[in-house]
Design a protein around this nucleic acid. Structure first.
Lengths: 115, 115
DNA sequence: TCATTGTATAAGTATATTCTTATGTATACA
DNA sequence: TGTATACATAAGAATATACTTATACAATGA
């Protein structure tokens, strides 16, 4: 029963706990499909900015996501160097795409694309 | 991006939260490899019987595991009819086998096999 | 029939979690 | 230089979680 990419059970529990919150799980799924900034999540979840920021901090502190500062915005994305990236992908790949959410934002002209 | 076995994101979050506890995750991993009774978990985790029982109840209430009563013992196993079984398997398959734990119990003569 | 064993449940407690409100910091821009 | 915007952080409150202790219940065996 060899396992190409084993994850210690304690590590797995920590990751699952982190993702076992609807808001954070949605954030991670979205970030696996788009880079995204904080204010977009605030708009998307109709949630206060500090609440979003605190969820992002948990994800950042655990290394799952990284940030990129551009002007006054902070863009988040999945951290490609996350040691358990393949396990993360395994967990989120069966979840339906959340692209429609970004498309809705875009349709409302609320997508931030400051290029 | 078709998905053979999609799991709604809210459902996924609930499952991940349930598994995001080291004790429950270990229980589920063990049960995916062996049928097991309550007292064995008590011995294995060096944890009180009510604490174990309460973890098992959460897993049972969510449908992940089922019980089989045999004399005074209650044997638990993964519920093969669990609607999200394949997602569950996806999540636990990268975790190292916990068979060694059962083998340790057996070596100590503490394995219950009342056949 | 009564004591023992395995398990479940209830109630209480300590701690963790997730939000709110208030405030601080950095950048942009007039 | 002052104000607005985006974000982070701190402190507090409400709730959820995971244990403990006490007790109930069901099956076993003397």
């Amino acid at each position: 029963m060899l396992n190409e990419q084993a994850v210690e059970i304690e590590t797995a529990a920590t990751i699952l706990k982190l993702l076992g919150d609807k808001t954070r799980l949605t954030i991670v799924k979205i970030l696996s499909e788009n880079e995204c900034c904080v204010c977009e999540f605030v708009e998307l979840f109709q949630m206060s900015q500090p609440a979003v920021s605190q969820h992002l901090r948990k994800l950042r502190d655990s290394g799952l996501v990284k940030e990129r500062k551009k002007g006054q915005w902070v863009y988040y994305s999945v951290n490609p160097s996350y040691p358990y990236l393949s396990y993360l992908i395994t967990i989120i790949q069966d979840i339906p795409s959340q692209r429609f959410r970004m498309e809705e934002l875009e349709a409302q002209g609320k997508r931030i694309t400051c290029e």
